[in-house]
Nucleic acid binder design. Structure first.
Lengths: 209, 209
DNA sequence: AGGGGCATACCGACTGGTCGGTACCTGGGG
DNA sequence: CCCCAGGTACCGACCAGTCGGTATGCCCCT
């Protein structure tokens, strides 16, 4: 395993003059996400990715060191967005109920608009190599801990019931969201915001003292 | 794609006289589950499966028509067990709260003792071919509907709050369980029964009128 | 102003290795 | 003696990644 990983690439955008409509690296990642979500990482060939992105293998390997790098790029951008949202919400220092509600609504919204990314993520994260797996776990742990401490502090302050461990509540909340790609349909009757609100209602009802 | 699929095999068990300690087909499926859970379906070679099961390719293809059949066998037995549990619990016709509690505890217990199967299932179900996907969806739908109608009837009877749609409550409950393989560790501090109880408490708290 | 030197972006035929599946063989119990 | 669980050698397809090459700027020196 452990290939060389050119390490350059990433989102080296168009640079030059007027960034063209579809910058090549972004087109490649976009096609990859769609295909990986539809058929799985291993079942998708590099050739299919480049065909879907209307580029050639040369272009792909010019920007990405390996097929795995493509996968990692998908994770990085998704986790980045989610962590940023979480930090922003927690930093606002609102009351616990509002904070929990905002976290869940925002999470459901992001997940809904990135169903493919999330589906790939949930299904294929175990393919990360040791290094990346470690850094990924650290991020996820941070997300989990941040969320948990919001719940825990509210429990200590008596704002939330302590009947159920904060851990369990967080696990339940994040569980739904990660499963969302299996049942969510963009053309379904409920908007992501509505869904997020319903989920938040339920979780908050479970935490009511 | 679409290979021929011999269609024989399945769980042709030991049949004959005294089922030996490790009947060959069971050993093969057991090894496959472990490997698929650890490395993913595509990343696991048939050779690895037969080595782990201490048999040869000839034996594997004697009992199973293809690598995909192996995967399907795993799904079938897991879904079978879960549906049987659900039917048994609902047939007892206890009050809604007890029924929901029993469903969740039993589901968490089964899932915990079949973490590998569940992990494979969640990650690889999209590889099912059209026919099998259809029959699988039908089963899942039946599970979902049965569970939902328990909640819905209790809501109509005023036993449960109607603040949140029954659908959403069920989705949340099943969401945690499917995510369980990502965080559950058999040697962790909480027993499956305890975990199931905590999850049930939380869900029931959310449904309290 | 112009041109040489160099970097970036991309092309696509090719390869070395791997893997699912098959054809054929064998030994022992009924 | 025959049948079937199980063994073994092999095949054909496929695929990630490579590599030599081209085209198109951009910058600096004169």
């Amino acid at each position: 395993m452990a290939r060389r990983t050119k390490a350059r690439a990433g989102a080296a955008a168009g640079a030059g003059a007027g960034a063209r409509a579809g910058a090549t690296p972004e087109r490649i990642v976009g096609a990859a996400v769609r295909l990986f979500a539809a058929k799985g990482f291993d079942a998708t060939t590099v050739q299919e990715v480049v065909d879907a992105a209307s580029v050639t293998k040369g272009a792909l390997y010019h920007y990405f060191g390996s097929k795995d790098d493509l996968l990692f790029e998908i994770y990085r951008s998704l986790i980045g967005r989610q962590m940023a949202d979480l930090d922003r919400i927690v930093a606002a220092r609102l009351d616990a109920a509002t904070t929990v509600r905002r976290i869940l609504v925002s999470l459901v919204e992001t997940t809904a608009e990135s169903v493919d990314e999330t589906a790939v993520f949930v299904r294929e994260m175990h393919r990360l190599n040791a290094d990346r797996m470690t850094s990924f776990r650290a991020e996820r742990r941070r997300y989990h801990e941040t969320f948990r401490s919001v719940v825990e502090q509210a429990q200590e302050a008596g704002e939330f019931s302590s009947a159920v461990p904060a851990d369990t509540a967080v696990l339940i909340a994040l569980g739904v969201v990660n499963q969302l790609p299996t049942w969510y349909r963009p053309d379904g009757p409920k908007s992501p915001t509505q869904l997020g609100a319903e989920i938040a209602d339920f979780i908050l009802a479970g935490l009511r003292p």
